[in-house]
Amino acid sequence: MTAGGKEAVTSKRRLGIARQVALELRKGRRKHLWLICAAMLGVLLLWFGYQSARQVEVTADYRVLLYSLPTVNAVFLPLLSAVVASTVCDVENRGNMWKQLLTMERAEDLFCAKWLTCVLVLAAVVTVEVAAASVIGGTLGFQAVPVSESLVLWVSTLAVCLFVATVVECLCLFIANQFVPLVVGVALSFLGLFSMYLPAYVSVFVPSSYFGLLSTVGMSYDYATEVITWSTVAWPVGYFAVIVLVTVAAFALSLRAFARKEP
């Protein structure tokens, strides 16, 4: 095949995946996916706003926001990520349509289209969350959050959400019972609630704890003076590399297994 022919095939495949992603987004709209995300995000921001309103009475340091938001994320976002992945796969699971779909399109394209749909939805959710948190902080009287630190927070949060969504999508594609993936989301949210109290050698094995592990803010408490001191720490690139590598591995293994799925 000539170089031009290869480019034409690649371009056609990309357009096909783009159309599949658009179709998946339309399916999600029928399943009220955006409404579910908006409702869960609204509860998250209400909790975050309530906590921030109490803390601003002590200090207006913006680092309080960057410390509090990952803590709230560890509770809400694992479940939200699981719900997104489960909803994206729910139509085919309910109708047992996998065999029909796999006779009409490549398994790899179907898997990638559903994963990319999760990426787009979660990216939108995280973008709105980070922007809204900054607005809430400014309204309450906190210092403005630097753009660079907001960007690091966005990247860190999305990376952990995509790991959870990748694992849950894999479970959805191989397990017909959608209750199992949702249980995984609930379990990760429950663990996220206590992740900050776990020893470091344990928390590194808990996916939801990475919302806090990737934080760029440190906190120290002086028991003698009862004063909390906030500090900026270097972005833990090592933890970020771990979550990215594990996500890539989960994606690659799941894609390979799904590609071998018999129609």
Score class of each variant (00 low, 15 high):
residue 249 A to V: 10
residue 49 G to N: 08
residue 148 S to H: 14
residue 101 L to A: 01
residue 60 A to R: 11
residue 236 P to G: 03
residue 262 E to Y: 03
residue 191 L to W: 09
residue 76 F to G: 09
residue 175 I to N: 02
residue 147 V to A: 13
residue 44 L to H: 13
residue 108 E to W: 09
residue 16 G to A: 02
residue 154 W to Q: 13
residue 226 E to R: 15
residue 238 G to W: 06
residue 18 A to E: 07
residue 105 E to M: 10
residue 38 A to V: 14
residue 248 V to D: 01
residue 61 D to N: 15
residue 82 A to E: 01
residue 130 V to C: 10
residue 107 A to Y: 00
residue 191 L to V: 08
residue 23 L to D: 09
residue 82 A to R: 01
residue 50 Y to G: 12
residue 18 A to I: 02
residue 234 A to K: 12
residue 167 V to D: 09
residue 144 A to W: 09
residue 210 Y to Q: 04
residue 149 E to T: 15
residue 243 I to D: 03
residue 155 V to L: 13
residue 159 A to I: 15
residue 119 V to T: 13
residue 227 V to R: 09
residue 257 A to D: 08
residue 98 W to Q: 00
residue 31 K to I: 03
residue 256 R to W: 14
residue 195 S to Q: 08
residue 121 V to W: 08
residue 85 A to L: 02
residue 117 T to W: 04
residue 42 G to F: 12
residue 63 R to W: 09
residue 65 L to N: 07
residue 139 T to Y: 10
residue 19 R to D: 03
residue 111 F to T: 09
residue 218 G to R: 08
residue 232 T to W: 10
residue 114 K to V: 02
residue 178 Q to H: 01
residue 184 V to G: 07
residue 254 S to P: 02
residue 245 L to G: 10
residue 234 A to W: 06
residue 3 A to G: 08
residue 207 P to W: 10
residue 99 K to E: 00
residue 154 W to V: 14
residue 109 D to G: 06
residue 52 S to T: 13
residue 57 E to D: 11
residue 181 P to E: 02
residue 139 T to P: 04
residue 133 A to D: 07
residue 109 D to R: 03
residue 59 T to D: 05
residue 229 T to S: 11
residue 46 L to G: 14
residue 182 L to V: 03
residue 40 M to V: 13
residue 153 L to N: 09
residue 232 T to G: 13
residue 158 L to E: 10
residue 171 L to S: 01
residue 85 A to F: 01
residue 187 A to D: 00
residue 221 Y to P: 03
residue 110 L to A: 04
residue 84 V to L: 05
residue 44 L to D: 14
residue 50 Y to A: 15
residue 35 L to Y: 05
residue 34 W to R: 07
residue 140 L to I: 12
